[in-house]
């Protein structure tokens, strides 16, 4: 049953996506990882280096062509190991595509994943300043928004607590609140909403997602949680063994994903 504040994607204003600016474009993007297997000893590493049997190539992504528009809530789904997180990292520039592939990105971004992503030896207060500053806010702007960030994350009482003492949920809420208030233009969310925050925080996040289209904030969301994908995404990409299997609306793509799951 939906809560009263829950917002469905159909309730957001109609947008002509073709006219919208492209913020992410991938052309012929493939990603191959070269791995050398060997025991973690000097002898093991040396023998692995010279033995062809120890060298493996893993094709994580194959020939991806994609355009994402400004303000779009774009979902990426697929089995474990299908290349979802690799694709997100390529979009964020953490990974480089194979030669011949091109990744174009316009706008500052924040990658939101359930890892740490903060300097754990610094306090929440210090991490807010550090992250918001990197996202482009001036000290003056950060000082103005600092309390709002803490309030949104529900961490007012933990302002001067080192992040290493925070739970995963607290860290994720803080990251999300910083990204929202520091006006990151692109949010890369990697399985980010699994168990993050209470109902109030989730409702707040959903209202932020709704206004994203209007504000031109692009969200790329990698997830296994189909209700979230169905609820918010305008388009969904289905990846299978590194290849694009389907690209379309959630109603078109989710059934194909379910079919793949059964195989």
């Amino acid at each position: 049953m939906k809560s009263k504040t829950e917002v469905h994607k159909d309730q957001v204003p109609a947008v002509n996506w073709k006219e919208r600016e492209t913020v992410i474009k991938l052309e012929n993007v493939s990603k191959t990882f070269s791995i050398i297997d060997g025991a973690p000893t000097m002898a093991g590493q040396l023998s692995a280096f010279f033995s062809k049997k120890s060298h493996r190539k893993i094709e994580a992504l194959k020939n991806i062509n994609l355009e994402i528009k400004k303000g779009e809530f774009f979902g990426i789904i697929g089995h474990n190991g299908s290349g979802k997180s690799t694709l997100l990292r390529l979009m964020a520039g953490t990974y480089q595509p194979n030669p011949g592939g091109k990744v174009y990105r316009k706008g500052n971004f924040m990658r939101l994943s359930l890892g740490i992503g903060f300097d754990t030896e610094l306090t929440a207060h210090e991490n807010i300043f550090l992250n918001a500053s990197i996202l482009g806010l001036s000290m003056k702007q950060i000082r103005e928004r600092h309390d709002l960030i803490l309030h949104m994350a529900g961490l007012e009482e933990y302002k001067h607590t080192k992040v290493k003492f925070f739970s995963t949920g607290m860290i994720s809420r803080l990251k999300f609140a910083i990204a929202v208030h520091a006006e990151a233009e692109i949010f890369f969310m990697d399985e980010f909403f699994g168990g993050v925050g209470d109902l109030q925080f989730k409702q707040l996040s959903e209202s932020i997602f709704k206004e994203s289209i209007v504000k031109g904030r692009t969200i790329i969301h990698v997830s296994h949680t189909l209700p979230t994908i169905r609820e918010h995404c305008q388009r969904v990409l289905l990846l299978h063994r590194g290849e694009m299997v389907a690209l379309g609306t959630p109603d078109e793509v989710i059934p194909q994903y379910r079919k793949l799951m059964k195989q």
């Binding site: 500052n108 990658r111 992503g117 990197i134 996202l135």
Partner: peptide, 9 residues
């Protein structure tokens, strides 16, 4: 890496 991987800088 916590900065380089997660935020554009």
């Amino acid at each position: 890496s916590f900065i380089l991987e997660n935020i554009q800088i």
